[in-house]
Design a binder for these strands. Structure first.
Lengths: 203, 203
DNA sequence: GTCTATATTACGATAGAC
DNA sequence: GTCTATCGTAATATAGAC
């Protein structure tokens, strides 16, 4: 069991507060004043834990990227037919997105104004390319419809998956469903059905 | 024919410059200084044309919303089976999104920090509900698969369509295709195929 | 219509006490 | 670890000359 007391901030606990504010107001729209109000401590106290606003962003997007890249290292993403591996990755992407919702949300909204943001954009592109390669292999194996170009299909599928951050809200402590009536399981299944019902050749 | 000279700004021409900067840097990340540099005039000259930064945002999102709501008034969106009307609206949404790319892009990125932004979000929700109703009708008519909840499907389809703003870049003056190799026609067809190949019952 | 100059406020970050 | 006070900068917006 962890220590019972939980009164002072660590970079980690401060991050969870900051990320919420970043999401609500946007990163550029969030001032240190906003963060201090949300955390219940003064601006200067925040600087005791982190070097500044940008470090909070870096920690947040790093976490999201690590989780996403982690998917590609999982066994089911490495063995089997390209089509099977693709479906596994798509499902896991949805799961990771919901499990790490605030962090992935922030990652997907990064624009590229600062060095940290440009680094995040680059790593995102790298991940996209890895998944695009998977889809390309599935197409080469004949498991994906040929009348939609691979790169275009990748972009549209990513668009559908990533858009989940715009509306999905996790279930409360009771676990009886989320604020929108869609459970995690239901969302994963819906995405898989819509994506592959459209991507795969008519069965 | 319009006047040949084009040297001084109007709110309209200034808007097209501002919208580009808003998209690149984000609305909150854009200062009046940034806008003045991009427009090639001083900050105070901008205030001669518009009341401030927020008016530029309001004009931009208004234009996008007007175009989107306009779709619902078109004949093919009002007559025929719900399934046919839905497909027409989906295709037209993609077309409008690409034709009014910068304005729709801005609309989709609005967060809700200012009054203008909250108004835009509300009108967006209204549009979403109108399309969701169409999908619901199509489901009632039995033309849409029943194993994915209507609201969930609407959200995912909107997500796919809206994500186009993240990568689509219009064709150059030569008209021989855009910067990504995807033409307008190709994108519309790809979306229609992916969306309805997944949404519709197996044929 | 555009400019320079400036008022005023808000921001990110630091200093130093406790 | 947290605070108050404050620095220097950059933001929105205005005043007034041309």
């Amino acid at each position: 069991m962890t220590t019972a007391k939980r009164d002072t901030y660590t970079p980690e606990t401060l991050l969870s507060v900051a990320v919420q504010v970043f999401i609500e107001r946007g990163y550029d729209g969030t001032s240190m004043e906003h963060l201090s109000k949300a955390a219940g401590i003064s601006k200067s106290s925040i600087y005791h834990h982190v070097t500044g606003k940008e470090e909070l962003l870096r920690r947040a997007v790093s976490r999201a990227l690590d989780e996403l890249f982690g998917i590609l290292d999982e066994e089911h993403a490495r063995v089997g037919s390209a089509s099977e591996r693709l479906e596994y990755v798509v499902r896991r992407m949805v799961e990771v997105l919901m499990a790490e919702l605030p962090y992935v949300t922030l990652l997907l909204r990064v624009r590229g104004n600062t060095g940290t943001e440009r680094w995040a954009l680059e790593r995102r592109r790298e991940f996209d390319h890895r998944v695009a390669a998977l889809l390309k292999d599935a197409a080469a194996e004949g498991d994906v419809r040929a009348d939609v170009e691979v790169r275009l299909a990748t972009r549209l599928v990513f668009g559908m998956i990533n858009s989940i951050v715009e509306w999905y809200r996790p279930a409360g402590p009771d676990g009886r469903g989320d604020a929108n009536g869609s459970g995690e399981r239901e969302v994963v299944e819906a995405v898989a059905r819509l994506v592959f019902g459209g991507l795969r050749k008519a069965s």
